[in-house]
Write a protein that binds this DNA or RNA. Structure first.
Lengths: 232, 232
DNA sequence: TTGATATCTTGATATAGATCAACCCCAAAC
DNA sequence: GTTTGGGGTTGATCTATATCAAGATATCAA
């Protein structure tokens, strides 16, 4: 791998405290590749040969079952995915595909596991990362079971507004059909849900959203820090 | 804590490879307590003061939001819960209550974090445990989004049958109202779902289930190793 | 045993959400 | 510029699931 990528990868929490020699060993074993959009990088059920790092672009994690498909999360730069499968040397539970042109680092899982065994700082960073991943999925489960689809959309919009800087107008950044799948609903229903939020000050123009009265939407969405806050 | 409990706790994967002195430090800081049924041990949102180990009995993890409640998992001996919150020093995302008379070890989170910092074997064991927890929740999310409630029940019964030894008659071990909540449905609907599985050879008598033709139920449930297998 | 209480079941009804079909719109390819 | 195809929307309909109400069954304490 070209050393020019090292600094940005090194800056990830996962790698920032590990031993320099181990870090270089890891990256020298890795590859950087550019992928076009809509390439399936990994398929659920396969053995986890690589830990992936998204340098640019974006990647969708999704899952299939009996002809159905659901979107589980979107990975944006710079972060890793499929860490748990790599560490446990277990099959991937989710598939991954590029959403746009993306630059991906692939580090052989075997090397990750070897360094994990000898580098204590790396092992501790993995703990923090996995704990974060775990808590993120627990929040998703709570949201799915405790909120209606309309509430999920309302809270998603509030979260996205915050991520986009907090202005009253912001962009979705996600295709609506994929957002629907992520929220656990059909595209048709998402379209109707947007209309149902109009009385709470939500207006939609393509991928641009305007929330005219945030407090009004909040009073409907009833966001909870234990589901919606980023690093709780 | 009385030393008589040490061996059974030590036998957990989480503690089995750590340094003996560290293990004893950890347990000496801990308490063992007996709780009656239906005691709320922790409440979501509180800071994580203790790592809990269930020695006997059982504990339910659940969550509330706007008057609704959902059951997320049942912890049976001997295992720990609330590890991720402890490690991250973050608020609990779920509440916990005893389901029956239970003996619980409570180890102060601060001590767990201190030993985590110095004991590399312990740190690695935590990685394995968290990766397992993470993958379990991902499977739950997939099940919730990709299966109907009837399919969830059918697959739950097949899993429970396996856990109970594989015989055609086995016990539910879970109150039906709580099972309904776990599966993301109402008690009324669970009752109807049991009847709907009758054509596939499922008969119910109180908490006893009989699956007369397993292959018939399997052909309906279409279990997937990536959701239903224990340690995949 | 009896009473009290909670769980479970059943039926009737309401609601949320999925499906199907048609159409619109826009962007890329010819 | 026309064509083509995909995403998005809308309306009509259907299905899954929740809710409400009542009765049945089980559990436990007095």
């Amino acid at each position: 791998m070209p050393e020019s990528h090292y600094p940005e990868i090194r800056s990830l929490d996962l790698f920032s405290h590990m031993d320099e020699a181990n870090f270089e060993t890891l990256l020298r074993a890795g590859y950087v590749q550019n992928f076009p959009p809509q390439i399936e990088l990994i398929t659920e059920g396969e053995s986890s040969d690589f830990l992936h790092v998204v340098l640019s672009g974006s990647v969708e994690l999704f899952s299939n079952l009996n002809g159905r498909e659901t979107s589980i999360s979107t990975i944006r730069p710079i972060s890793t995915f499929i860490l748990a499968a790599t560490i446990k040397d277990a099959p991937y539970l989710m598939s991954a595909r590029t959403l746009e042109k993306s630059r991906i680092v692939m580090i052989p899982s075997q090397d990750v596991r070897s360094i994990f065994e000898v580098d204590n700082h790396f092992a501790r960073a993995i703990v923090t990362e996995l704990a974060l991943c775990y808590r993120t999925v627990v929040k998703q489960t709570k949201e799915l079971k405790l909120r209606t689809s309309l509430e999920r959309l309302a809270n998603y919009l509030l979260r996205q507004q915050t991520r986009a800087g907090g202005g009253s107008v912001f962009e979705l950044e996600t295709e609506k059909r994929r957002l629907a799948s992520y929220l656990g609903m059909t595209p048709e229903n998402l379209s109707r849900a947007f209309k149902a939020l109009r009385p709470y000050g939500v207006s939609v123009n393509g991928s641009m959203i305007e929330i005219s009265d945030q407090s009004d939407l909040i009073s409907f969405a009833k966001p909870s820090p234990l589901i919606d806050d980023k690093d709780v």
